[in-house]
Amino acid sequence: MTTLTAACAFGVIAVLIFVLGYIAFQGISSLSWQFLVQTPKPVGEGGGIGNAIVGSLILLGLASCVGIPLGIIIGTYLAEMGDGWFGTIVRFVADTMIGIPSIVFGVFVYAVVVLQQGYFSTLAGALSLALIMIPIVTRTTEEMVRLVPKSMREGALALGAPQWRVTKDIVIPAAMTGIATGAMLAVARVLGETAPLLFTAFGSRFYNIYLDEPMASMTVQIYNYAISPFEEWHAKAWAATLVLVTLILFINIIVRFLTRRKY
């Protein structure tokens, strides 16, 4: 039994290492400082993904600012008070949203925001990403908050703490590591999304910080590079992928570090 599980674990890790290694192998040759800071240029002139990195981080930051707090609040509500019919409905909606393909959110925001306003925008892109994040954060938060032992809540209640303080001071801190993991999952998921951004943030060839203009993103840039017929751009797609994966890895490590169990 131990041998079998060890073999399975080894198999999974081997696949992961192969994928990462292959990406690194393919991408490392095109990686350079210029690649990281320059904007895209025509074939043969070099160019990079500098604007796409910044764009992705802005989109991700905006989406996280909305999606993570909202998800935590809704998830905590579901865990602490969501046993009634309303909670059941919210939970059902969240579950359904998790199952919806991400392109649907892109199309939805395209129809509701982009078409109404008449232009692609950073805000629209961030909104579609936030919509993907909310149900993921909600459900993981609910699971994690439910895992906090009843005895811990009772300990605080027995000291005369009102319910909201018990939730804020005891339950959420106790579940923080798990909630952070859930948030990380959501962040990693949307950082890798391309489809919803094609309809919303669209993409851009320039550095941009304005939220009401189209915004470049790494995934869209990778998409553009990858579907081109040029060998040089294919290499750039690999390099951009390597940067994306590294970025996700770093965000993971940083969040782990920040939310490590202090007590």
Partner: peptide
């Protein structure tokens, strides 16, 4: 809340806070 402050409680399983 003030009742529970006046009537403290200790539980079967020790339940310290994550602090």
């Amino acid at each position: 809340a003030s009742l529970r402050r006046k009537v403290g409680m200790v539980f079967q399983k020790s339940n310290p806070f994550p602090k």
